[in-house]
């Protein structure tokens, strides 16, 4: 393939990766940004979202879009409910103490993963995209649904941004994020804010999973890699900066896509990983974070 079209393809793929990363990171940037807890089970909420998407899509026969739409509604709700439950039963009792939270959420990870294996099984199962269209470009074909993911990602980012900056709930969250003690003193029920944020974050992970599962598959071990990647995106972007999260996702997605044009795949992955690490080494507060206090 000529260089131009190849670059176009690599950039398109990079954009899709970026969109996927941003989607996955949205929920985590909320949880991590506001609560400052490392939720190791976040990837499992994502996995659950995909598995429930498969389940609800298989309930409905007929056009695949119907099942997909049902999944889009049902999956985030169920996952958010599970997250709310685990927050009330476990995390709150730990006072969100960072180290204890890590162990507890590792425990949660084991439980969710095992239940998925027992009840859903070890197979990778596909969910059909709501529409199946192949864009035939002059040089190669491309999936229209992948472009739809980019659009959905942009839409959700804007919605989150409006939610955080233009609504009262957003204000409460931001207040809690910048200083929980003062927020408490001003009568903000920090405890309840945490519960809502935790559920919301998990719901967003599930939503991302529903959108992504038509181009990947639902599998009970699918949670690990997205967890790591979304952590990376959130930190590189700078804690609490939505703009940073978006830029970081673009940076990581595109560098991964374009570096892969020039090197053998595994070497490209190594270089991209190192590049990301070095960005953080020389800019520890992340791209858009404020310098550490």
């Amino acid at each position: 393939m000529a260089f131009g079209p190849y670059l176009l393809l690599a950039s398109l793929e990079g954009l899709v990766t970026a969109a996927v990363l941003a989607l996955m990171a949205l929920g985590l940037s909320l949880v991590f940004g506001v609560m400052r807890v490392v939720n190791v089970a976040h990837g499992e909420f994502y996995m659950l979202g995909a598995v429930i998407a498969w389940w609800s899509a298989s309930l409905i026969s007929g056009h695949p879009a119907l099942g997909f739409l049902l999944a889009l509604v049902v999956s985030p709700l169920i996952v958010a409910a599970i997250a709310l439950l685990s927050d009330r039963l476990v995390l709150r009792r730990l006072n969100y103490e960072p180290q204890a939270t890590i162990v507890a959420t590792i425990g949660l990870l084991y439980i969710i993963q095992q239940l998925a294996l027992t009840f859903y099984g070890p197979d990778a199962r596909p969910v059909q995209a709501p529409f199946d269209m192949r864009l035939a470009l002059p040089w190669f074909g491309y999936s229209a649904y992948k472009l739809a993911i980019i659009a959905a990602s942009i839409f959700l980012i804007i919605a989150t941004w409006i939610g955080l900056t233009r609504t009262k709930a957003g204000l409460v969250m931001r207040a809690t994020q910048s200083d929980p003690d003062t927020a408490q003193a001003f009568g903000i029920p920090v405890d309840r804010v945490y519960a809502v944020v935790f559920a919301l974050g998990a719901g967003m992970a599930a939503l991302a999973a529903v959108l992504i599962v038509p181009i990947q598959q639902a599998h009970y071990l699918m949670g690990q890699d997205p967890l790591l990647l979304s952590f990376v995106v959130v930190i590189i972007g700078g804690l609490g900066s939505l703009r940073g999260t978006v830029v970081a996702a673009l940076f990581i997605g595109l560098s991964d896509g374009i570096i892969s044009m020039f090197f053998s795949p595994t070497l490209a992955k190594m270089l991209a990983t190192l590049l990301v690490a070095l960005v953080l080494v020389f800019r520890p507060q992340g791209l858009f974070g404020t310098a550490a206090r």
Partner: peptide, 13 residues
Amino acid sequence: MVVVGLALILLIL
């Protein structure tokens, strides 16, 4: 793994 997960949570609680 469910049992192990529960054990971890109880232990840390």
